[in-house]
Computed example of a mutant assay.
Amino acid sequence: MNFYIVDVFAESKYAGNQLAVFCGTGVAELSEAQMLLIAREINYSETTFIRSPDRRNNGYDVRIFTPKKELPFAGHPTLGTAFVLQQEIIGEKVDRVILNLAVGQIPVTFNYRNQSADILWMRQNSPNFGQVLSAKTLATVLNLEPDEIDEKFPIQEVSTGVPFIIVPLKTIAALKKAKVNSDKYFELINTTEAKEILIFCPETYSDINDLSVRVFADSLGIPEDPATGSANGCLAGYLVNYGYFGQDAIDIKVEQGYEIDRPSLLLLQSQRTNGEIEVLVGGKVVMVAKGEFV
């Protein structure tokens, strides 16, 4: 099997979120257990498997694994896999690549600069809004004080395919300070559909960005994720739904991964149209390595 390593939501190599993408004739023969073993061997937050180089229903069948389990959808694996498909399998400029994932077909569109793929955009499902949680509970989970959480906006489960608990903070000092209390975290997720937590604040490391974000995913074997497209898609819907920026549409830059030395940049666009919230998440993908599994 051929494999490719790409950095997703990265402005340059060795930043963003790492992804291993497998393709080739051997991939179709892999069992679910074998794919999970390979994902554990790679030990990135996610590894993807392109099941066939041929399209089905105009899309490519792809499966996504963390070191612990298969996911129905994830953001940076979707962009990174689409990039590998365009670069290595399709081999020419295309406007769009569709991935057939467990949540359905997810389209990825390409913008090019000097004939090279530049910004990739994925359209996520319209967000669903679930349980609202208390500041006191999340403060305990995150080792924060309740007054460090922004009470003007709810703590809520949101999903565009995979649910996340969205937690608004007031300052970047609180964002930096946050640290998951494992016992309280696992106690909490026994009562929630969402098992991962996104925290965000309006203060940023870089003046050109609009929000700073961290994502904790201990239930997936990922203590902290450097760039999370699925979670930021949920955040985009949340921001529009609650008018965080005082309007029904956003076009913003979000930074993530600074606390773990993997600076990442995610582009979020969202708007409410005919009662539905549309969500787009974009970013760059950089090829880092190519190889072969034997």
Rank of each mutant, 00 (worst) to 15 (best):
I197S: 11
V158G: 00
A102V: 15
D95F: 06
D183E: 14
L85G: 04
S159C: 15
I166C: 09
S116K: 12
F200M: 03
V141L: 07
L133R: 00
T78I: 03
P72R: 09
Q105Y: 10
G130T: 08
D150G: 01
A74H: 01
D54N: 03
D147M: 12
L133Q: 02
L85T: 01
I166V: 07
T171P: 07
L175A: 11
F83E: 02
V158K: 00
N111E: 11
V132I: 06
L144Q: 10
E193T: 14
W121Q: 13
Y60H: 01
Y185K: 10
V167N: 07
E70Q: 04
N114W: 11
E151A: 09
Q115I: 11
P67F: 08
P146Y: 14
K184M: 06
L188A: 13
F186D: 12
N100D: 12
R123T: 13
L142T: 10
R63K: 05
K152I: 07
L99F: 02
E157I: 08
Q124N: 15
E187S: 03
V167W: 02
D61I: 03
F110P: 08
R55S: 08
A82W: 02
T137N: 06
L142H: 03
I89D: 02
E145P: 01
P53M: 10
T192D: 09
P77V: 13
I189P: 01
P107Y: 14
T137W: 09
N58K: 08
D95Q: 11
Y112W: 03
Q124T: 15
I90H: 04
